[in-house]
Amino acid sequence: MTYDPEQHHRRSIRLPGYDYVQAGGYFITICTHDRTNMFGEVVDGEMQVNAVGEVVCAEWFRTAQIRPYVRLYDDEFVVMPNHIHGIIWIINDDVGATRRVAPARRVAHRVGATRRVAPTDPPRGPASGSIGAIVGQFKSIATKRINALRGTPGAPVWQRNYYEHIIRTEDALQRIREYIATNPLRWHLDRENPDEW
């Protein structure tokens, strides 16, 4: 079997040219690795979250505690058996503006000689304070806690990417909030539900 670079090239699903650090609402969907049901089950149209799902809930809402420019609301989040839906509000785009400055050289702690770490040019990964950085940190911390709980160090929990939609109107916000609230009622119709394949 030969390596085909086109087959392994990941196309970005982000909006080209959009600054994902700016203030606003972002509807986020994150699926589990291989869409495995691991967060609980839907019973009679209601999500019954298990211990792993409780970790996901706790870490989602902890995001707003560790990032003062983020707001999250109970009625804008749902854990499903193999994915989550939520709205992340970035409320202060001044925070993002200050985070976009070029990184200064950092000096490591002295161990013998002074070591310097050269800045990466261009920077790798999502911009600090961006939706990508917020989602990445959430996924990382939740994964560590879930794997500690299950005794599965290093096991994947999430798909590599996530889906995001920029909320631009009040009508869109209301439709998304309703979609989130009624998601468990539609689980039997969900194409991501392996029980329905």
Rank of each mutant, 00 (worst) to 15 (best):
M1L: 12
T2R: 11
T2L: 11
S12D: 07
I13V: 14
R14I: 01
L15F: 04
L15N: 00
G17I: 05
Y18A: 00
V21A: 09
V21T: 15
Q22D: 06
A23Y: 02
G24A: 05
G25W: 06
G25R: 13
T29C: 04
C31F: 01
H33G: 00
D34P: 10
R35I: 13
R35M: 06
R35T: 11
N37F: 15
F39C: 11
G40R: 11
E41F: 00
V42D: 04
E46L: 11
E46S: 11
M47P: 14
V49F: 10
A51W: 09
G53W: 03
G53Y: 08
E54P: 02
V55Y: 09
V56R: 09
C57S: 09
C57P: 04
Q65H: 10
I66G: 05
Y69Q: 14
V70H: 10
D74V: 15
V78S: 01
V79L: 06
M80R: 11
P81M: 07
N82L: 02
N82A: 01
I84H: 08
I87H: 09
I87K: 07
I87C: 10
I88C: 14
I90V: 15
I91C: 05
N92Y: 04
V95N: 14
G96A: 04
T98I: 09
T98P: 02
V101W: 04
R106I: 07
R106C: 06
R106T: 14
R106S: 07
A108W: 07
G112C: 00
G112W: 02
A113T: 12
T114N: 00
T114E: 00
R115H: 07
R116S: 12
V117G: 05
P119M: 15
T120H: 09
T120K: 07
T120W: 08
P122Q: 03
P122M: 05
R124M: 15
G125K: 00
P126E: 10
P126S: 15
S128R: 08
G129W: 04
S130H: 00
G132E: 12
Q137D: 05
Q137P: 02
K139N: 03
K144S: 14
R145F: 02
R150C: 05
G151Q: 03
T152A: 00
P153E: 08
P153K: 05
G154F: 02
P156E: 10
V157H: 02
R160N: 02
Y162H: 06
Y163L: 04
E164A: 01
I166T: 11
I167W: 06
R168L: 00
E170H: 02
I176N: 06
Y179P: 14
A181I: 13
P184C: 08
P184Q: 14
L189C: 01
E192V: 13
P194L: 10
P194D: 05
P194R: 07
D195W: 10
W197L: 03
W197M: 00
